[in-house]
Design a protein around this nucleic acid. Structure first.
Length: 472
RNA sequence: GCUUCCUUAGCUCAGUCGGUUAGAGCAUCUGACUGUUAAUCAGGGGGUCCUAGGUUCAAGUCCUAGAGGGAGCGCCA
């Protein structure tokens, strides 16, 4: 069945700019970035989000009155139909000679907050509902989509299964930090037991529940059946962290792989990050060029260098030796760094940015500064953690070989007084068909920081959640 | 959470030692200009100097407290 009514099909601007069938009719729809001109001709720069580039719409003022064009202001939304032509101007190859204009939505120029220039990141955070319409944030969110696609593609092509781990959890020993409680109880009228403790038996889950801080433990359950899995979902930390690298709600990628050892884990970490960066270079050229020009002049060069560089693989003990050597040669650090200390960011930065000048995978940490589930080395003192440290960003990946021995895991749990009564299911993986396995967690927004060159993690996620901030 | 800096027009900022009517650029509005590219040029409008106290003859400026924001650190991805 055919419809009689002829209508103009919308062409997205990224496609419109590639068309060469000059003389044909075309329709584009989008938001006006600017309008300028004189009394004979008016130029509209239109953007529909499909690309960083605008299409230019040329209006002959003999055909359209100033009155008709009045609502076409920065921020307004229009549908423009016209003839596709080769541009007479220098800034673009194609443009549209307007024949028909429909204004979908106006934007009062006295009130619309986005101007053509001069907007700070801090200001744009206060208008996060509109900032996707700016060049910078359009770019960032297109790249964000591309990175998500790169991640799924990488794992899918390497035989991993996307495994969905729960966002609500009742185990409080994931060990990764403070949790947000989930409850349907009236917080002003809490039922207490005889000891004055809150009684959760009548709460929704019948026990204390919280938002997950990591899908790893459940991810291990998947790997112990499907072999290779990855998770990719939101993660929540209730830590009062106020830095450009922390969010209360962020997205994390956590692959978990059966039958691999430390070297293979490091190969995976390095190969995976390089794949994602290479994907950006191949699929996001226009957007990266924009960022390279306006946000971070060294961005593209740095991305290329990471793809081409072999990451340094450095044992913690050797790292401490290098740092102590540096101190001996006059380097000043605020914090001490003796064997057994956790490295602070100044130490990590020295190693990554000054000493090696490239990404470092640090391994074999003292067991007391790492999580209970990491595999103990033969020395009895260190565990097989494999963290990837990046310039500027610091820890972008936290990974480890997992301890598969039930006895050793139980010893560690006991030594740390970890409450495991709700975690019998995790230990079952070591009771029934235990397998050597390993995995890591990558902070999606930290990858985004690196790939975009943006300075603050709040500007690589559409609606950031941080302490005291849950607007939008 | 600790340390530190910031808050003046829609935006970005200047404002000297505490002293007359608080300024600039951009944006916006009006006008000019035969094709602009962050258009250009001329002119106009636009202020709770974050809030509340205090010191002083006099506070945008000094003091105290609070709110909001940034950065460094801690925690981590």
């Amino acid at each position: 069945m055919k419809f009689e009514i002829r209508y103009m099909q919308r062409t997205v601007i990224i496609d419109a700019l590639k068309r060469t069938d000059f003389g044909s009719e075309i329709n584009v729809r989008g938001w006006v970035r600017s309008r300028r001109g004189n009394k004979n001709v008016s130029f509209i720069a239109l953007n529909d989000g499909s690309t960083i580039k605008n299409i230019q719409i040329v209006v002959d003022l003999e055909k359209f009155s100033e009155e008709q064009l009045k609502p076409v202001t920065t921020g307004s939304c229009i549908s423009a139909t016209g003839i596709l032509v080769e541009s007479q101007g220098a800034g673009q190859a194609v443009e549209i000679q307007l024949t028909e204009l429909e204004v979908y939505g106006t934007a009062d120029p006295e009130k619309y907050p986005l101007q053509k220039k001069g907007l700070s990141m801090e200001f744009l955070r206060t208008v996060a509902h509109l900032r996707p319409r700016t060049n910078t944030f359009g770019t960032v969110f297109r790249i964000r989509h591309n990175m998500a696609m790169a991640i799924h593609t990488y794992f899918h092509e390497h035989g991993y299964f996307y495994f969905h781990t729960p966002l609500i959890t009742a185990s409080d020993c994931e060990g990764a930090g403070q949790m947000f409680q989930v409850t349907t109880k009236n917080l002003y009228n809490l039922k207490k037991d005889e000891n004055g403790q809150i009684d959760y038996s009548d709460d929704f889950f019948g026990k204390q529940a919280a938002l997950t801080v990591s899908g790893q433990l459940e991810g291990e359950l998947g790997a112990m059946a499907l072999g290779k899995i990855y998770t990719f979902g939101p993660t929540f930390r209730a830590e009062n962290s106020n830095t450009p690298r922390h969010l209360a709600e962020f997205w994390m990628i956590e692959p978990e792989v059966a039958f691999i050892q430390k070297d293979e884990l490091m190969d995976l970490e390095e190969d995976f990050i390089k794949y994602c960066v290479r994907w950006a270079l191949e699929h996001c050229q226009d957007d990266l060029e924009f960022l390279n020009q306006f946000v971070d002049k060294g961005l593209i060069e740095r991305l290329k260098s990471v793809v081409d560089t072999e990451f340094v693989r450095l044992e913690y003990t050797e790292g401490i030796r290098i740092l102590q050597e540096a101190i001996k040669n006059g380097k000043k650090f605020e914090f001490p760094c003796n064997w057994g200390d956790d490295l602070s960011s100044e130490h990590e930065r020295y190693l990554v940015e000054e000493h090696f000048g490239k990404p470092v995978i640090m391994t074999d940490y003292p067991k007391d500064i790492k999580a209970f589930y990491m595999k103990l080395n033969a020395d009895g003192k260190t565990v097989q953690g494999t963290d990837v440290l990046f310039p500027q960003i610091g820890e972008i990946i936290g990974g480890s070989v997992r301890e598969e021995s039930l006895d050793k895991l139980n010893d560690e749990i006991e030594r740390r007084h970890i409450p495991m009564k709700d975690m019998w299911w995790y230990l079952d993986t070591r009771r029934f068909g235990a397998a050597p396995h390993a995995g890591f967690g990558l902070g999606f927004e930290r990858l985004m920081l690196f790939v975009t060159g943006m300075q603050n993690i709040r500007d690589v996620i559409p609606f950031p959640r941080t302490p005291k901030t849950a607007e939008f």
